[in-house]
């Protein structure tokens, strides 16, 4: 989203139809990384690993599996744990694109 906004910013300069000189290019603001601020909720055993029920997480990436990788890097013990991911309160798959801020990691519970 941030990337698109910046692209529009360039378009507004009305330079889209002609060649941009190197000197001009250097005056443009740099493209920021595509990061999203997510709110991630953890349940059960997962909350014990992360030591929190909820946190703000800066995510640089595209889909659910990239998010999982990022979380495995932050919390090594999450690796290999069984859980499902919900985005905006709907269960999603590994290849679903992250486009909502609210994420939840859901483990199965054995006890009864």
């Amino acid at each position: 989203m941030i990337y698109l906004k910046q692209k529009n910013q360039y378009n507004n300069l009305n330079h889209s139809a002609r060649v941009i000189t190197l000197a001009e290019l250097k005056t443009f603001p740099p493209l920021k990384e595509i990061t999203m601020k997510l709110t991630i909720k953890y349940f059960g055993l997962l909350a014990e690993i992360t030591q929190c029920n909820e946190e703000q997480f800066e995510f640089f990436g595209t889909d659910v599996s990239a998010l999982k990788e990022a979380l495995y890097t932050k919390y090594i013990l999450l690796n290999g744990k069984d859980f499902q991911v919900a985005q905006g309160q709907v269960l999603v798959n590994n290849d679903t694109l992250i486009n909502e801020k609210e994420i939840a990691l859901l483990p199965p519970f054995a006890g009864g």
């Binding site: 055993l45 290999g80 744990k81 069984d82 499902q84 269960l91 859901l106 483990p107 199965p108 519970f109 054995a110 006890g111 009864g112």
Partner: peptide
């Protein structure tokens, strides 16, 4: 549809 297959043995503790 929630959890397609059981977790690995001993991974999720019970009460």
């Amino acid at each position: 549809c929630l959890f397609p297959s059981p977790p690995k043995e001993g991974e999720v503790p019970n009460c």
